[in-house]
Simulated assay, not measured.
Amino acid sequence: MRALVVDDSRAMRRIVGNILSHAGFEVLQAGDGQQALDVLETQTELPELACVDWNMPVMDGLTFVSEVRKRPEWRGITLMMVTTESEQDRIVRALAAGAHEYLTKPFEADDMRQKLEFLGLLPDVPVEV
């Protein structure tokens, strides 16, 4: 399975990417919504998941979600907002725009794994002991 991490913070991309890698995902990265659209345009195999920050320069996460949802060929991508924005109206707006889930920063790796499991996106990988 493949995932796209969209966040303007390199550190946050690394943190989310590491969690997803350990869960069995091949991880792609983008620093803003426009870069993420450019990444999607170049993929022959689309990611099953995109983890998207809200506040980014060039194109914010909500606009990215809306743009992805406009493209029929991209509608199969599961979109999860991963952001510091925790106000109820923001969550409602993101879900109404087409996000499937919403994870508020800061979070633990288990929080993300629970969201992935809920979405049916947790690949079957052996647990490291």
Rank of each mutant, 00 (worst) to 15 (best):
M1Y: 02
M1V: 00
M1C: 04
L4K: 07
V5I: 14
D8G: 04
S9D: 11
R10W: 01
R10I: 03
R10L: 05
A11D: 14
M12K: 03
M12T: 06
R13N: 13
R14S: 05
R14L: 14
I15N: 12
V16Y: 06
N18K: 10
N18Q: 15
I19A: 10
L20H: 03
S21R: 12
H22T: 14
H22R: 15
G24D: 14
F25K: 02
F25N: 10
E26W: 11
V27S: 08
L28T: 10
Q29C: 13
A30S: 12
A30D: 09
D32G: 13
D32K: 07
Q34K: 14
Q35S: 12
Q35R: 12
Q35T: 01
A36G: 06
L37E: 06
T42V: 10
T44C: 05
E45W: 03
P47E: 01
A50L: 07
C51N: 11
V52A: 01
W54A: 11
N55W: 01
N55I: 04
N55L: 10
N55A: 05
N55V: 03
P57F: 01
P57D: 01
D60M: 04
F64R: 07
F64A: 02
V65W: 02
V65I: 07
P72V: 04
E73Y: 10
E73V: 11
E73T: 06
W74Q: 11
W74E: 08
W74Y: 13
R75G: 11
G76E: 15
I77S: 08
T78P: 09
L79N: 02
M80S: 12
M80L: 12
M80P: 00
M81N: 04
M81Y: 06
T83Q: 05
T84Y: 02
E85M: 10
S86M: 00
S86Q: 07
S86I: 08
E87F: 02
Q88V: 04
I91Y: 05
I91P: 01
I91H: 08
V92L: 12
L95M: 11
A96M: 05
A96R: 09
A99H: 08
H100A: 11
H100V: 04
E101S: 15
Y102S: 02
T104N: 11
F107Y: 14
F107M: 07
E108H: 15
A109H: 12
D110T: 10
D110S: 09
D111R: 07
D111S: 13
M112H: 05
M112F: 06
R113T: 11
R113S: 02
Q114T: 09
K115H: 05
E117F: 12
L119F: 00
L121Y: 00
L121H: 04
D124A: 15
V127Q: 08
E128N: 12
V129L: 15
